[in-house]
């Protein structure tokens, strides 16, 4: 085990869950980031709210780092890996109707069978991918 931060993990997870509760209570929407991003980039009603949410993600993270003084280390992953990862995440989350937040948090909280299956699948392929890239191919990801 390395870098285990249980208290921050639990507190941060609580804030993520709380944000999902707030969004549902106020707007009636599920806090799935891939769905919110897709709504923001496609034409349609309610785009401005989605852009405000996405700006809030950056602002909230910046405020936490400013208040805590925690400067996160900048990583320098090569651009082809970033681009390949981004393309797979964008395509996969739309085909699969959700990501870590929509399926992994909100969907599991609602005991949705689709979300439970999707989460098991993306966790499994994520673990398998890291095994292949780091341990079989020896990439420094």
């Amino acid at each position: 085990m390395e870098g285990f931060t249980p208290a921050a993990g639990l507190a941060g997870g609580f804030l993520i869950g709380l944000a999902a509760v707030m969004l549902l209570a106020l707007t009636g929407r599920i806090a799935g980031i891939s769905g919110i991003l897709s709504g923001a980039i496609h034409a349609g009603e309610g785009r401005s709210g989605r852009w405000l949410f996405l700006a809030g993600l950056v602002a909230g993270a910046a405020v936490h780092q400013w208040l805590s003084g925690a400067a996160l280390p900048v990583r320098e992953l090569s651009w082809p890996l970033l681009a390949a990862g981004g393309l797979a995440v964008g395509l996969g989350t739309r085909l699969g109707s959700g990501c870590t937040s929509g399926h992994g948090v909100c969907g599991i909280a609602r005991l949705s069978p689709r979300s439970i299956v999707a989460t098991v699948v993306f966790m499994s392929t994520g673990i398998a991918t890291v095994f292949v890239t780091r341990h079989l191919l020896g990439w420094a990801t």
Partner: peptide, 13 residues
Amino acid sequence: SGVVFGAGLSLSG
């Protein structure tokens, strides 16, 4: 909601 979510993503790691 976005601000709270973003703070949670940063705090959690």
